[in-house]
């Protein structure tokens, strides 16, 4: 199920503003890839270009090639809706649908794909996804309560359950723990470890330890200077990146001696 992503010469624009320039990388299948870098360097922007969510913003566009499973996502004729069904996303702030119950939240994506499900098939998916997101035990007695009634960390795991319910090939996560306490964070990190057996995972994080703990590869993004576009400075296995980075800028950033 897991697929690799080949990115070549990607430039990302907001209208005339070039936000990210000249990115080349290969995200390995079935591995966790982390993006780190200072605020505003375009990590979220780049991540959102991987499932064509970037173009939801008026005037935003992407140049270059992003190839998943032999298919360039930006080729004319590729439907962004189909791309997003294959490449799921978890956002920085938990965003369960406020008018839906926990149960319906998990099924929201699946209902779009498969139409009406049989009751017991639906029950099965809900349980499997919630177990997958380590949330089942906490919510199994209140599946019909609104998703907004959960704590922030639970809501975030609900969003992960919702994303994995449609069984995507790739899961993108934009700072999924930044609004969470250490316990929920560790729950989600454990979850990422388990999920990488089935999915290719790309995660943006500001937390160096987190990147070191969960990821197999790390990409370091930086701005050349203020006002310049962001770019990928270094992309290496996480072990190498944190022990012996190629680029002095990476070392400076990781060791906290940054600008």
């Amino acid at each position: 199920m897991a697929k690799s992503i080949d990115v070549s010469d990607v430039n990302i624009y907001y209208g005339d503003f070039l936000a990210v320039q000249g990115v080349n990388m290969t995200v390995r299948a079935g591995a966790v890839t982390a993006f780190i870098g200072p605020s505003g360097c375009g990590k979220s922007t780049f991540l959102r270009s991987l499932n064509r969510m970037h173009e939801v913003i008026p005037g935003a566009r992407v140049e270059g090639k992003i190839v998943v499973d032999g298919q360039d996502l930006y080729e004319p004729g590729v439907d962004p809706v189909a791309v997003r069904r294959q490449v799921g996303m978890v956002f920085q702030r938990p965003n369960p649908f406020p008018t839906m119950s926990i149960y319906d939240n998990v099924l929201a994506g699946l209902k779009l794909n498969a139409g009406k499900l049989k009751k017991n098939a639906a029950d099965e998916v809900v349980e499997k996804s919630l177990r997958g997101a380590n949330l089942w035990n906490e919510v199994k007695d209140r599946l019909n309560k609104p998703g907004m009634g959960l704590s922030g960390g639970q809501q975030q795991r609900l969003c992960i359950a919702r994303a994995i319910a449609v069984e995507p090939q790739i899961l993108l996560m934009d700072e999924p723990c930044s609004a969470l306490d250490p316990i929920s964070t560790s729950a989600i990190e454990d979850l990422i470890h388990e999920l990488k057996n089935d999915y290719t995972i790309v995660i943006v994080t500001h937390n160096m330890q987190q990147a070191a703990r969960v990821s197999d590869d790390t990409g370091f993004f930086n701005l050349k200077a203020t006002g310049e576009p962001g770019h990928l400075v270094e992309f290496n296995p996480t072990k190498k990146m944190f022990a012996n980075p190629d680029d002095p800028a990476t070392e400076a950033y990781i060791s906290g001696r940054f600008g």
Binding site: V81, A82, R84, R85, G88, F91, N95, A108, G109
Partner: peptide, 16 residues
């Protein structure tokens, strides 16, 4: 916007 993007990221069409 957060909720709209949640739906789009699940692969909803605009009408969905």
């Amino acid at each position: 916007r957060l909720h709209e993007e949640a739906a789009l990221a699940l692969g909803a069409t605009r009408w969905e």
